[in-house]
C-alpha cells in the first residue's frame, strides 16, 4: 500500500507537490477548503511574463493529479502529533494518519478595505487587482466604466505598510500592475494609465522588459509616489492625491477607475494549524522556515514541510519550484526514517 501524505491546500503548490509525490510512489491527499483546485491562480486570467492563461496551468496540473485523493470543501479540524507522525482530522469526519505533512495553504489577499483612505467598498469605482482579473475572466463588474478615460493603479496596498501590519513586499504586485496596466490599455486604447509606485521591484525574468514595453509601447505613466488619499467627486470619478516624489511636488488627478494592488498576507488557516502542532511563526505573520536560504521548505517540526506562499510572498514559478523541492524533501525524509 502506498504511503499517505496529507497536503493542506489545493492551490498550485499543493497540486504540483501532489503530482511529484505521485511520481515518487506516494499517495498524496489534498485537503482544499474551496470547491475547486487551483487557489488564487484559478481566479487569475493571464500570468506574467508570457501572458500564459492561468486556467491552462490549473487544468494541466489537475489532469496530472487525477490519481490523487482530493477532498474539496474540506478543512482541517485538528492535527495532533503522534509518536512517529501526525493524525489529521478533517471536518468531514475523515481521519488520516501520516508520517509527513505538507502545508501549502498559500496566502490571503490583503483586505483592501483596511486602507480606508482608498475607499475600497465605499467608492463606486475602486477595485482590486483580483477584481480586475475576475473581470478579465468575463465576470461583470459595475464598478468598471464602459469607456474609462483615465485609470490608476496603486502599488503596495497593504504591503510595505507597517501600520497595516505588513512589513513585507508582496513581490508580484509591481509586475502585476504593469501587466494589468497593459491589459487595460489594450481594452481601452484611448485611456491614460497611471501607475503610482514607491519603487518598481521588477526582479524576475522578463519583468523589466514588461516595464519597458508598458512605457514605450503602451505609454503607461509611472508616478513615483504613494497615493495618500482618494475622494469621490460628484460625477463618481475619483480624485486621487499623491506626492510626485521625482518632481518634489504634490500631484492630483481625477480618474475614472482605480485599481488597488492588494498584497499577500498569510492564510489564517496556516496560523491555525501552526498553533495546533507548534510550528514557528515569523514576525511577518507567515510560517517560519528552518532557514530562509537553504531550508525554506522545512519547518521546525519533523515531518512537516512547506511549499509556496505559506512561508512568504511568492511568484508562481517560485511556488512550483518549492512544491517540487518539498516533494523531494518529503521523500528523502521518509527514506531516512
Amino acid at each position: 500500500m502506498k504511503e499517505n501524505i496529507v497536503i493542506i491546500g489545493g492551490g498550485i503548490a499543493g497540486m504540483e507537490a501532489a503530482k511529484q509525490l505521485l511520481c515518487l510512489g506516494y499517495n498524496p491527499i489534498i485537503v482544499e477548503q474551496n470547491d475547486h483546485l487551483g487557489g488564487h491562480v484559478s481566479q487569475w486570467h493571464q500570468l506574467f511574463p508570457d501572458m500564459t492563461p492561468a486556467q491552462d496551468l490549473v487544468r494541466r496540473l489537475g489532469e496530472e493529479i487525477s490519481e490523487a485523493n482530493i477532498f474539496l470543501e474540506t478543512t482541517v479540524s485538528y492535527v495532533n502529533k503522534l509518536k512517529d507522525g501526525y493524525n489529521v482530522m478533517l471536518n468531514n469526519g475523515v481521519n488520516i494518519v501520516c508520517r509527513a505533512l505538507l502545508i501549502a495553504s498559500g496566502f490571503k489577499l490583503f483586505d483592501a478595505t483596511k486602507k480606508e483612505e482608498y475607499g475600497y467598498g465605499v467608492y463606486d469605482r475602486v477595485i482590486t487587482n483580483s477584481d480586475l482579473e475576475a473581470w478579465f475572466n468575463g465576470k461583470q463588474d459595475p464598478r468598471i466604466p464602459d469607456k474609462p478615460a483615465r485609470v490608476g493603479f496603486v502599488h503596495c496596498v497593504g504591503s510595505r505598510d507597517l501600520k497595516a501590519g505588513n512589513s513585507q513586499c508582496s513581490k508580484v504586485c509591481c509586475v502585476t500592475a504593469i501587466k494589468q496596466a497593459i491589459e487595460v490599455k489594450e481594452k481601452f486604447p484611448d485611456a491614460e494609465i497611471y501607475c503610482f509606485y514607491m519603487d518598481l521591484r521588477l526582479f524576475g525574468k522578463k519583468y523589466e522588459d514588461f516595464y519597458i514595453n508598458a512605457q514605450r509601447d503602451f505609454g503607461v505613466h509611472f508616478i513615483r509616489g504613494r497615493v495618500s488619499e482618494v475622494g469621490e467627486a460628484i460625477d463618481g470619478r475619483l480624485q486621487v492625491k499623491a506626492e510626485d516624489t521625482l518632481a518634489g511636488k504634490p500631484l492630483k488627478v481625477t480618474l475614472d477607475m482605480l485599481v488597488l494592488m492588494s498584497g499577500m498576507v498569510c492564510n489564517p488557516q496556516a496560523t491555525e494549524i501552526a498553533r495546533m502542532i507548534h510550528l514557528d511563526m515569523d514576525d511577518d505573520g507567515f510560517l517560519r522556515s528552518r532557514d530562509n536560504v537553504y531550508s525554506i521548505i522545512e519547518s521546525n517540526r519533523p515531518g512537516v514541510f512547506y511549499a509556496g506562499a505559506c512561508t512568504g510572498t511568492k511568484t508562481v514559478p517560485e511556488t512550483v519550484a518549492e512544491a517540487r523541492a518539498a516533494a523531494l524533501g518529503i521523500d528523502a525524509y521518509l527514506k531516512s526514517l
Binding site: I212, Q215, R216, F222, K249, K252, V253
Partner: peptide, 29 residues
C-alpha cells in the same frame, strides 16, 4: 498651489516630442 494637476496639464509638447523621440517614454528617471 504647488500641486501638479494632471487634469489640466497640457501634454501636447510631450506628445510632440514622443513623435520625434519615442525613446523619451522609456526614461526611468
Amino acid at each position: 498651489s504647488s500641486t501638479l494637476n494632471l487634469d489640466t496639464a497640457d501634454l501636447s509638447l510631450y506628445k510632440k516630442l514622443c513623435e520625434l523621440s519615442p525613446d523619451a517614454r522609456t526614461c526611468m528617471a
